[in-house]
Design a protein around this nucleic acid. Structure first.
Length: 285
DNA sequence: GTCCAGGCGTCAA
DNA sequence: TTGACGCATGGA
């Protein structure tokens, strides 16, 4: 179903909402570029935008890039199987988390954007990450227009390379500005984030952690959200809390905790990690 | 004022 | 290999 608008085609994707809740999907910490708009949300990825909202028992996505956002929202994956797997694991917290968060979908985001974004995320909170990324986009990203209003694309390496360490400081990057500058230098001398897609899970993790400012946790997030490697189970402060309080774990080292969870959940790790993360954050707010 | 947030690099032992 | 420590910043 579609209609013409300003010489471009506006796609309208309609999906059953049982396993797709826009608010849960957007607010669970995997994406920072979205904002409330009319009855729903505007979502920006790279230089593309869509409007997503609930209508009756469905979710509607309006965009000029229907194919892109069909993939982006992972609409070809059957989430019922995933939720059932989580419910069968027989952990009380996970069952509640999966039951309440069954509308969460793992977004297939851009690797380049995820790498820079999750470098900002370290030792930071979601509210501040969101505002810092938005300020970055407004500062050097391309200004674009859409049927939903003007917006800024995520900047290219060339655009970000225009910024100095002081610029990053002024944008609120704190000590992380240096990591951007180092990464941009790598990219400008030939490093290609997209080429990492051909690596194995382990190879990808190692390649990412070899970058300055990218440790195990950031690499896991990039692996999951940027490369859709659902075997990844990022462990941050929230997940560590869950590990102790709800899985009664005794390991201290986060790398070991990650490996323990990945061993438990295999290719379902990424989804389950998001159910748990989202649930724990809601519980504490 | 202190603690914390989707941690990481560095350095001593 | 492991453990402590400093790091920018803003909200609670």
């Amino acid at each position: 179903m579609f209609y013409a608008f300003c010489f471009k085609t506006m796609d309208k994707i309609i999906v059953n909402g049982e396993f797709f809740n826009p608010w849960d999907t957007l607010s669970c910490g995997q994406i920072f570029r979205y904002k409330q708009f009319n009855n729903g949300y505007l979502v920006i990825s790279q230089d593309k935008i869509c409007y997503v909202y609930e209508q009756d028992n469905n979710v509607v996505i309006e965009t000029e890039n229907g194919d892109y956002f069909y993939e982006f929202f992972d609409l070809s994956t059957d989430y019922k199987t995933i939720v059932n797997f989580a419910l069968c694991y027989n952990n009380q917290t996970l069952s509640r988390a999966a039951s309440l968060g069954k509308g969460i979908r793992i977004l297939k985001q851009d690797p380049f954007e995820m790498l820079f974004t999750f470098i900002v995320s370290q030792n930071n909170n979601i509210k501040r990450i969101t505002s810092t990324i938005e300020k970055l986009c407004e500062k050097v990203g391309s200004k674009l227009s859409s049927p939903f209003g003007d917006y800024f694309a995520f900047p290219t390496a060339t655009q970000m390379s225009l910024l100095t360490e002081k610029d990053y400081k002024d944008l609120g990057f704190g000590y992380r500005g240096r990591y951007f500058i180092e990464l941009l230098a790598e990219i400008n001398s030939g490093f290609n984030v997209y080429a990492l897609a051909s690596l194995s899970d382990e190879g990808l993790q190692n390649a990412l952690t070899s970058l300055v400012g990218v440790g195990e946790k950031v690499a896991s997030c990039v692996r999951l959200f940027g490369f859709y490697r659902t075997s990844a189970f990022p462990v941050d402060t929230w997940i560590e809390k869950i590990y102790r309080e709800d899985f009664f774990g005794t390991l201290k080292d986060r790398k070991k905790i990650t490996l323990w969870f990945e061993g438990q959940f295999g290719l379902y790790s990424g989804y389950i990690q998001q159910y748990l993360f989202h649930f724990k954050r809601l519980e504490n707010n």
